[in-house]
């Protein structure tokens, strides 16, 4: 193919790049510089509720907030907890999503579109209301406890809400479509004749799955896992509505620090820490993965 000749020079080309570039530089990049600056400040009463970093020509930067974050186990625990909850939820999501994706990929062709649409549809409805639905289902007078009581498995309602179980369930439920889509994309492209060959050679279906289907779908597995894990790590709404203080996740801790304790500099320091420890490695991982996907195309 000829090299791109489309808008190779001139004002038009400059404008097409500069407009989004400037917007993102001002509203996406600059904020992080400010967050870093304020994380070195100290909170105070007043508007805005932090001390100016530069006053009378001197820079008053301090690392107090970072020392505080390291000193209090609450923050370190919340960070580890977020990673743990997000990883377990993504793993369980994979176990639920894989059969679902495989089922759609192996369905008669004219049904696939509809089945896939039915997986995506919940994504277009409200995230908040889908989490809200679980409050009703999980509470002690709710239908799940009601059914268990009626069957006689338990004689007292179980505490399901405000548990780590509920937080995991909420994450799995809301992010399941993100797991199914990439899995379906890799499974649907698989050559079914490989399975037929395996079966002709006497492999049992289970063995054929383990040696052919599963290894070939690994890119989808990695993509699905990351697509669930990444948003789950910083999740606020789910631990807030379905969890309790024992299931503190880093997003919720940051929210509390900002809205309830009104400590903007500390919240900013926490944001910087999360950026450096979680977001940067994840962004790099995604970058490597996408490069690899592009290379195999």
């Amino acid at each position: 193919m000829k090299p791109a000749r489309f808008l190779t020079s001139g004002f038009g080309r400059w404008l097409v790049t500069a407009l989004p570039f400037l917007w993102l530089a001002v509203f996406f990049l600059a904020p992080f510089v400010i967050v870093f600056g304020i994380s070195l400040s100290r909170s105070r009463f007043g508007v805005p509720p932090y001390e100016p970093l530069i006053s009378n020509g001197t820079i008053a930067a301090r690392l107090d907030n970072y020392a505080f974050l390291l000193g209090d186990s609450l923050y370190v625990n919340a960070l580890l907890n977020s990673l743990k909850i997000a990883a377990t939820s993504a793993a369980i999501c994979l176990l639920i999503g894989y059969p679902l994706a495989l089922g759609i990929a192996r369905a008669p062709e004219r049904w696939r579109g509809g089945l896939l649409l039915a997986v995506i549809l919940p994504f277009w409805t409200s995230f908040l209301l889908r989490v809200y639905a679980w409050i009703g289902l999980l509470k002690s007078e709710g239908p799940i406890n009601g059914a268990l009581l009626a069957v006689g498995v338990i004689d007292q309602p179980l505490q399901l809400l405000q548990t780590s179980f509920a937080v995991h369930l909420g994450i799995i439920y809301t992010y399941l479509p993100f797991m199914v889509l990439p899995l379906y994309a890799t499974l649907e492209r698989q050559d079914i004749s490989l399975l037929e060959a395996a079966s002709d050679l006497g492999a049992r279906p289970w063995r054929a799955f383990l040696t052919i289907t599963l290894p070939l779908s690994l890119p989808g597995v990695v993509a699905g896992f990351l697509l669930v894990f990444i948003p789950a790590v910083g999740e606020f709404v789910i631990p807030e509505l379905l969890g309790d203080s024992r299931t503190a996740m880093i997003g919720k801790v940051l929210w509390t620090e900002f809205f309830n304790n009104r400590d903007w500099p500390l919240a900013a320091a926490l944001a910087v820490a999360v950026l450096a420890l979680i977001v940067a490695p994840l962004a790099w991982l995604e970058h490597v993965r996408l490069k690899r996907v592009e290379a195999t195309r």
Binding site: L24, F27, V35, G234, E235, F258, V274, L282, A283
Partner: peptide, 22 residues
């Protein structure tokens, strides 16, 4: 440019919100 158009996809919402407010 690439980094700025891809980063919002992996950014936790609380951080985007906080940084924009600041």
């Amino acid at each position: 440019f690439l980094a700025m158009t891809a980063a919002p996809l992996v950014m936790p919402e609380v951080i985007t919100g906080l940084s924009l407010l600041l």
